[in-house]
Design a protein around this nucleic acid. Structure first.
Lengths: 331, 331
DNA sequence: CTGAAAGCGCTTACAG
DNA sequence: CTGAAAGCGCTTACAG
């Protein structure tokens, strides 16, 4: 591997000059410059980003830790982050916590060790406040993605309560009064917000919300299938509509509905957050709250760069708009 | 940020000793060791991975460039690579070429600059041989993922020809003789292999394959929709079955079939590679060739580590088995 | 069992 | 307009 010294020697100049040619950071005589450039070419010079970073105390890289790389929404967010990072010439270090706080911690430590310029985190379900304190203590710029926190931290997510309210409006408008919410793990802030939105919206419409109309705590498709199935079989007053707070929960609920013998939308209405890909091609046609996952990722990078450039600026919290795709499942 | 010097000073030892405690690389008196450890704790020491890498000429990081982060199959591969890398304590640098050879090149250069220990590449459609030559010239360990090449390079993909043959067998067994293959961009090796498999299988069964039964060259859902629609409307001898070589192509073809007024499977059989998530929950129930995308990613990391540890070992080429999920769409 | 010192490949004041 | 030299934070022969 050729180094800057090789180039300097071959060109008959100092390493300073080579460095300045490389970075265009001070004037160099055209002729000298040309000599340096041709020396670089002839030795196949490639600047070592590591050495450069060490000296500059800046790596031009950012770290992203997502909680569930398997979910399509997260895959889209990763994609958005990658895109936005590449546009700015930043490298992206990716890690997946798989909803495990211990793995999340390990991943964050590894990223801090690598001196990323900043961190984007979609936190694991059971993630404590300690990790964020740690990052703050290192004074490392941080942005929370999708999973927000009631803390003084830059973050970007979606308008979960608004979307849930709109969904409940839609269903109650169709005459539904008993709605089953498949809420999932309420330690996840986005799921909690959807849950809160549901309770508030139902209450605002004067509709009682007995416990039997919320299925919470599941976090796998299989577990959700079982729990929803049980609810559908035993609920004294059977719901006329089911609402799922994520794709994974929706898949479990859908299977349970089908297996219990209901027909969508004839005997059971159904809607879900996030939803399924290419859903317009398939039956049942499902009403879906679509979050702008890709943009979420892009905005996270924007917030992070803002924080890196201005460490003491005011905290920024972004809520992007979801859109609701109304389809036959809630007719 | 505390450095190794701070720790050494506080503990009253040399930096050598601190380093050796850190890496457990030579014996240190228990008492000294304890002093060092407590000094680390009290200054909040965190080893700088950059400085370490610079010295060791090894970064414990690998780079992954995928061609289409939007496709679910690639998302799964990324997930598999991440998982396998994390298990080995490697950091993952991720980039997306979006099927653009120029972006691919930029991404690879950035990764080489960062001195990743090795590179995993799912190459862009129009990627030339120059890039691989470049990587080889840098003597950087390399593994090709999914998109294979007839070159002396470690690589892992799936048994595309076998799967296509099995699919054709299945359809001809049902009496289909005119099959439309939606083949996509044949510069992509996996698509080319599926295409070759199709031609060979049809020929082996004595079934003519006039041009009209292959739709090639499209690489968007929209474009595929249009082209397949046109074929279905104008084909002199209309196909009785449609086969798509990827999810994206399948989505376009499916839309075209539906819009042309065919019913699956009554008036048109249909099957696709890669397919749609949770497809068992939706109608039409589509026969799908499922590739083990996650494992593909894991195996790629395995091959890469093998190459890093043994740069002069023999080339390894892996073909993982796909599985075919037979469903109603080809009944 | 431990330390002094060189060196990884850069950048950047400082000096001329 | 250019160069000599210090220093970023580590690791690792070498010496004792």
């Amino acid at each position: 591997m050729a180094t800057i010294v090789d180039v300097a020697t071959l060109a008959g100049v100092s390493t300073s000059t080579v460095s300045h040619v490389l970075n265009e950071t001070r004037h160099v005589e055209p002729e000298t410059r040309a000599r340096v450039l041709s020396a670089m070419k002839s030795v196949g010079y490639r600047r070592d980003a590591l050495a450069r970073s060490l000296r500059r105390a800046r790596t031009d890289s950012i770290g992203l830790v997502v909680s569930d790389a398997g979910e399509p929404a997260f895959a889209d967010m990763v994609h958005g982050v990658e895109e936005a990072a590449a546009r700015r010439g930043l490298s992206l270090l990716l890690a997946n916590s798989a909803e495990d706080p211990a793995r999340e911690r390990t991943a964050v430590e590894a990223l801090l060790d690598r001196r990323v310029d900043g961190l984007i985190l979609a936190r694991a379900a059971g993630s404590g406040a300690g990790l964020l304190a740690r990052i703050r203590q290192e004074k490392k710029p941080l942005v929370l993605l999708d999973r927000m926190a009631d803390l003084d931290v830059d973050q970007v997510g979606v308008d979960n309560e608004w979307a849930m309210t709109a969904l409940v409006d839609h269903l109650t408008g169709k005459g539904h009064e008993r709605i089953l919410l498949v809420a999932g793990d309420l330690r996840v802030s986005s799921l909690k917000e959807r849950y809160d939105g549901f309770l508030a919206a139902m209450e605002a419409r004067g509709l009682a919300t007995p416990t039997s109309t919320v299925c919470e705590g599941t976090s796998t498709t299989e577990g959700t299938f079982e729990k929803v199935g049980k609810l559908l079989r035993t609920a004294l007053q059977r719901p006329s509509a089911v609402l799922a707070s994520s794709t994974l929960l929706g898949a479990g609920a859908l299977r349970a509905i089908q297996q219990a013998g209901f027909k969508i939308p004839e005997t059971m209405a159904f809607a879900t957050f996030d939803g399924f890909a290419y859903s317009d091609l398939f039956t049942p046609q499902i009403t879906t709250v679509r979050q702008p996952a890709f943009q979420l990722g892009e905005e996270a990078v924007g917030l992070l760069m803002g924080r890196i450039e201005n460490p003491s600026g005011p905290t920024r919290v972004l809520r992007l708009e979801s859109s609701i795709e109304f389809r036959r499942s809630t007719e």
